[in-house]
Amino acid sequence: MENKQIIDINNLVKRFPIGDGYFTALQGITLRFVAGEFAGLVGPSGSGKTTLLNLIGSLDSPSEGSVVVLGHEVSRLSHRESAALRNYHIGFIFQTYNLLPVFSVYDNVEFPLLLQKRDAVGRRKAVMEALDWVGLSHKAQSRPAQLSGGECQRVSIARAMVKRPELVLADEPSANLDAKNSHHIIQTMKRLNRELGTTFLFATHDEKVMGYLDRIISLDDGRVARDERPLCVNEAQSDSTAEENGHARRQARI
């Protein structure tokens, strides 16, 4: 499981039409991710993090090059096949949580399983387990409007994890949260990564998140500027070490 290649990106180019011309968001990206990685795409706004995440999530298709996710070349997938790939194998976590406001916490988490047409007993077990992971079992019947930002993001994590996907894509998951909640969220994801072996890929420019990452891919102007694996981050690392790590990185920048 650990060495199974989960994402294979080769010479990826992504252009968007602007007026009469094109804007190149990603250029010459070649990356590989194996199962169980806890990796992040970092870089300033407009560097192409979210675009790359969308391509990996099969929400968009490349202009050139290839993106192979779990053995599927995303540009060759039909809408239906893309939807099935996301439904069964990829979990998404968004900056703005994107919870369905009319549904309870339980219903929100159950939603991906309903799409998979799982049986009621299996759904209930999986939902309660996912809520346990994020420590929100007691809020199962609450509405998103009744939760704090941190709790909403934990529901979002539970929703992404409930179907036990091989890959979770998190786009700026801590951007709307305060420092305490950010750490809590990232720690939760780190724990799930460790316990379930799920691959996590973040798009972030949050230093707090970077402290927890096993692998940091820096994007700059649509290209990979650096692809590094901080040595001090490992499974046994304490939360405080991760915080210090982030702090040290900020200091180094200064």
């Binding site: 239906r80 968004f94 703005t96 369905l100 991906p112 799409l115 929703r159």
Partner: peptide
């Protein structure tokens, strides 16, 4: 629109 995008991200097809 964001909700529609979320449905698609979670695996709903456009026709769904």
């Amino acid at each position: 629109r964001r909700e529609i995008g979320t449905y698609m991200a979670m695996g709903m097809t456009r026709s769904q």
